[in-house]
Simulated scan of single mutants.
Amino acid sequence: MSAQGGNSPAHDVWADLRLTTQARIGLGRAGNSLPTTRVLEFAAAHAAARDAVHDPLDADAFAATLTDLGLGEPLRVASQARSRGEYLRRPDLGRQPAAGTELPEAATDIGIVLADGLSPRALVDHAHGMVKALVEAFDGRYTIAPPVIATQARVALGDHIGAALGVTTMIVIIGERPGLSVADSLGIYLTHRPQVGRTDADRNCISNIHPPDGLGYAAAAGVTAALVAGARSLGRSGVDLKDTSRQELDTAAVVSLEPAQE
């Protein structure tokens, strides 16, 4: 009972935990259903996820945002999926370049594909910052081909692009499938010596890139740079290639704690 004689509101034991995650936890209930606020939040998240999947990428406007990266004029590639609807119904068409696709041979160390995937919004929101962080992480060690904007694209489309460009390592930055917590998440897929017919076992993936709540650009770029270096040393990517960036950070931290030698 409160001092005024009324009932004090129940303490929400989940409030602090909700600050640490985007997951829906401790939703409560109103009778046999969820509280109205939670139902509306769910509906809004569902609508955002649907919009992220269905809204097409404005390739012209997106290309204009990349001009200050210093990588050259972006190239364009479309998959065989002729519409957003066909892309969603036929994943196989998103893995193949449209008929007549031609790309100039680049013969560089790194190729970068910016693919709309299942969330073009994620590409618009995060691709510029992600590519900028990659360029900084590579620190001039590798030659980089002009970026390729790929529409109605699945990850494997990068194999066709990488083979045509003649790059040593292909990095596909793609919009990930939206969920009810995140609609603008990017993924990075790295394939060493890309060629048509590569499988997921030949790739390494870095997921959940969407600062400030997900993985940050610098952290993702650091992992990618470590994987590129590892792939060049190992001669391949995929299941045999492990991320060593965390080990390098741990080693650096131990070294920094050692007393200076006189």
Rank of each mutant, 00 (worst) to 15 (best):
V239R: 13
L57N: 02
Y87Q: 05
P35R: 15
R203N: 03
E176I: 07
A49R: 07
T67A: 15
A43P: 00
P35E: 11
A252H: 05
A164F: 02
D109R: 09
E86R: 13
D202P: 01
G216L: 06
R236A: 11
G28W: 08
F62V: 05
V196A: 04
I144A: 02
D159C: 04
V13K: 13
H160P: 00
D109Q: 05
P91A: 09
I112Q: 01
N204H: 12
I206G: 01
Q261T: 15
G187R: 07
L190C: 03
P120M: 12
V172T: 14
S256L: 15
P35A: 14
G28V: 08
H54I: 12
D125H: 10
D250P: 00
S79P: 01
F42Q: 07
H126M: 02
R95K: 12
W14E: 01
L75Y: 08
M170P: 06
A183W: 04
G175L: 08
V254F: 10
R76D: 02
A260F: 10
D60T: 13
A15R: 11
E176Q: 10
R50L: 15
T199D: 06
R95N: 04
P194Y: 10
V196I: 15
L34C: 07
P212I: 14
L257S: 13
T224F: 02
A137E: 05
D51F: 09
Y87A: 06
A133S: 13
I209R: 06
R154G: 15
T37H: 13
A45S: 14
D243E: 08
R236I: 00
I188F: 01
L123A: 07
Y142K: 02
G140M: 08
T108R: 15
L157M: 07
T21G: 04
L66E: 01
R84C: 03
G214M: 06
T191S: 11
S2R: 15
V148R: 03
S8W: 10
S119A: 10
A47F: 06
A220I: 05
L27G: 04
T168A: 14
L157Q: 05
D240W: 11
L27D: 01
R154Q: 15
V77E: 06
G72D: 02
N32Q: 14
T67S: 12
A3W: 09
A106T: 07
R90Y: 01
P97Q: 11
S2K: 14
L190N: 04
P212K: 11
V228M: 05
Q247Y: 10
